[in-house]
Design a protein around this nucleic acid. Structure first.
Lengths: 174, 174
DNA sequence: GCGCATTGGTTGACGCGACAACTGAATTGG
DNA sequence: CCAATTCAGTTGTCGCGTCAACCAATGCGC
């Protein structure tokens, strides 16, 4: 009968419910908009963005999987589909012939350039429009603290989400 | 060439990357622990918790679906599996014979009582242990603001995640 | 050099969630 | 009242992600 569990306080419980709700709804909202407007999953979008932002717009599968928090099989399936759509290309890595390199194609870059504004729009509409500058800073710190627990190796924090005028846009503007 | 898109500022971009990473990793961490220790998805856990906390431990499918942010087909599938495992029971609603009521069984309550401490443990380990009291309050406010955008009808905020000594525990202790 | 474990990646089977189609009950309109 | 619509829920099919098995190339021990 001795219950040693350290239950959540009412404040923690309330915050937890909201956090879970956000974690549940946010991916769905992002997927919905991207699928509707660009035929891309949010995961596909992130993967393409990572490629677009990589040196030579090329990355090894394993590296890409790590940066996008995907298992290798998952990435392999996604890559096959993206390749069939002509958005990326895969070719064996010269230095290590076990490895495969993935490159985003011109078509892929164009799709990203088309998709980015709409995506940024929903990000704003669903998140940042609701926050003050102060809260933005707090969110950054809090999410960082939680990430330190969830992702101690910081594999994901390397993810580049180029939303200002970055390599993607520059590449197309050249 | 006129690019009217309101891109994210560097601060917003940084916060976004972290938020996305949390939204990506948190569900996985919850599912992993619950599946390992109780054979339950986090979604199943939430659904069972909602039932356990409902009057008469009973709820209509539609109501339950709404509270858990599930489509009706999804809930129907989950309910079938949970029923096959003897964790819930379904029976036609007397008042409206179109409707179906779901009740959590004794076995279901026991499973929840067994699973709850471990779940609370991972919630603490991954989130609240990393936050100060101040940040807890900020998280509550920020998540609330975002939820107002994502879930204007506040369907999810009604979700009860009974983590202190609530009906579930009391039911078993009686 | 030669076994042998390790690494990088792909493939196939299975499970879960989304979507569409369907059944049966309740409600509404005339 | 009866027809038409709407509502509650289930079922089937499809797509995506996971897991396990597999293949090929590399490194490593000796």
């Amino acid at each position: 009968m001795a219950d040693e569990t350290h239950w959540l306080s009412p404040e923690e419980s309330a915050a937890w419910v909201r956090l879970i709700a956000v974690a549940e709804l946010l991916p769905g909202a992002l997927d919905a908009q991207l699928l509707r407007d660009a035929g891309l999953t949010h995961f596909e979008y992130v993967a393409l963005m990572a490629l677009a932002d990589a040196p030579d717009r090329t990355m090894r599968m394993t590296e890409l999987a790590s940066r996008t928090n995907a298992t290798l099989p998952r990435l392999s399936h996604v890559a096959r589909r993206l390749e069939e759509r002509g958005l990326i290309r895969r070719f064996p890595c010269p230095e290590d012939r076990r490895a495969t390199n993935a490159t985003i194609t011109e078509a892929g870059l164009e799709l990203m350039a088309d998709a980015a504004p709409g995506h940024v729009g929903t990000v704003r509409a669903n998140v940042f429009d609701a926050l003050t500058a102060e809260q933005l800073e707090q969110l950054y710190v809090i999410a960082g603290a939680v990430l330190a627990k969830l992702d101690p190796d910081e594999r994901l924090s390397a993810t580049s989400c180029q939303f200002s005028e970055g390599p993607v846009v520059r590449t197309l503007a050249s």
